[in-house]
Amino acid sequence: MKVNTGSHGARRYVMRRRRYKHSEKKVGASPGTLIYVGQEIDYKTKIRRIDYNEAAYTVENIKRLASCSRPDDASDIVSWVNVDGIHEPSVIERIGQQYQLHSLLLEDVMNSQQKPKVEEYDGSYLFATLKMLYFKPASEELDSEHLSFVLGKNYLISFQEERKADLFQPVLDRIQASAGKTRRNGPDYLLYALMDLVVDHYFVVLDNIAEKLEGLEDCIIQQAAGQDTLTHLYTLKRELTLMRKAVWPVREMLSRLLLEESELIRPTTIPFLRDLYDHVVQVLDSIDSYRELATGLLDVYLSTLSNRMNSVMKTLTIFSAIFMPLTFIVGVYGMNFDNMPELHTRSGYFVVLGVMAVLTVLMIIYFRRRRWF
């Protein structure tokens, strides 16, 4: 979302959405075919593995996929594999082979248009996907990123769609600092921590949208709104609708994780997931409130335009009412008849002007008493 300043002090907003055409290669392809659907990316996938427990941790940048093997189930070390880039089918397929992941799961990982969801595969691993929403620092455009997670007994694989910045760096910093509960808990808590980071970004986006709604509200109330105000309001409503479309399935995901007893989710993690569920509900409530506010502002703006039009029409009507009898008088004495005694009166011209002036004053007094202006 881009913010500019108009000539009347009204802030202008430009929102852009990334639109991806569904790949033509998808049409007719067999289920599980790995085809990337998303923004074009021109760099190689980066893979980083973080192994940790309460006592120690190691961070390794993976250059050979053969070294990114599945950890031993008996190990007490949590293995976090962070994959930055989902655009290379060969890389995603190799990771799937290493961890014995279902082909349909890998297909959802590479499809950035996949809606958020959670699925469990035979109790051996759990798959979750959702959308990260944020504003780009330079242009303040509202953008989204497709994220996927595979949770195993003692490992977690995270897939990021994006390109340059590591969205999960704050969680990695906590692991390296040995602070908080991340190092003392299993991969299910790590999944919660990453999802909590995503939900925290939802609040940041909402704060930004609230600020822009307040700016538009001030412009409308102060009658400083320009002609593009209607476009900005519709754009904000569309962005709120898209945001709700991305957040609502997250509520269903968390509800399913809380209701279904999965062996991969430990009882100690349930309270944190319940708190995360409450945060998502709060985000959805805020989205609905802002949508109602945007609708209200739209009604106020249209009412303001209607009142302005009514004021203009009333002013024009008053002028027309004043000049109508004057035009009638002028029309009568403008007729070319010889038998019009007033035309031969010496002071007839001044008398008619006086009558017209008195008539104008009387009509103005009448309109003022009726409070028509």
Rank of each mutant, 00 (worst) to 15 (best):
G226E: 07
T269C: 11
S75M: 02
N82V: 08
R371E: 13
H201V: 10
H87L: 11
R370A: 15
S148P: 09
L197C: 11
S30R: 15
V59S: 11
K21V: 12
R369M: 11
A193Y: 01
Y13H: 06
L104P: 03
F159N: 06
L106D: 03
A179Q: 06
S144F: 09
L172A: 10
L216F: 09
A225V: 09
L343R: 06
T269M: 04
S178D: 11
L297Y: 02
L284F: 08
R346T: 08
M132S: 06
V280H: 02
D288F: 13
P71D: 01
L167V: 14
S148W: 11
R371F: 02
L343T: 08
L276R: 08
A29Y: 11
A246G: 09
S75W: 02
E40P: 03
I329E: 00
D207A: 14
S75N: 01
K117H: 10
Y290R: 07
I50E: 02
M110D: 00
E292P: 06
R308W: 01
M324D: 05
K46D: 05
I221S: 12
A246H: 09
L343Q: 07
G331T: 00
N82Q: 02
A66T: 15
R238K: 14
L172H: 12
S262E: 01
V171R: 03
N336W: 15
K115N: 06
D51Q: 05
D143N: 13
V351R: 04
G38L: 10
K115L: 03
I50A: 01
Y52F: 10
D275S: 14
V150G: 08
F367K: 11
T327S: 15
K2C: 03
R94T: 15
I95G: 00
S7V: 13
Q223Y: 10
G28R: 14
E252N: 08
W80G: 00
Y202F: 15
S124A: 15
G186L: 09
K245Q: 14
G215Q: 14
D218R: 12
V14T: 12
E54M: 02
R12Y: 11
H201F: 14
R163N: 08
Y290C: 05
E88N: 03
Q97S: 10
L233R: 12
D299E: 12
L298V: 10
Q39C: 09
T345F: 14
D275Y: 00
N208T: 14
Q169E: 08
G9S: 06
P31F: 14
I92R: 00
E260T: 02
L273R: 05
M356T: 01
L293E: 10
N82E: 00
M335T: 09
P249V: 05
F272L: 06
E93I: 07
A357P: 02
P31T: 15
L264T: 07
V59Q: 11
T5C: 04
Y366V: 05
E93W: 10
N53G: 12
L213H: 15
K314Y: 03
V91N: 07
R184E: 15
T241V: 15
M363K: 11
F127P: 00
A179P: 01
H102M: 09
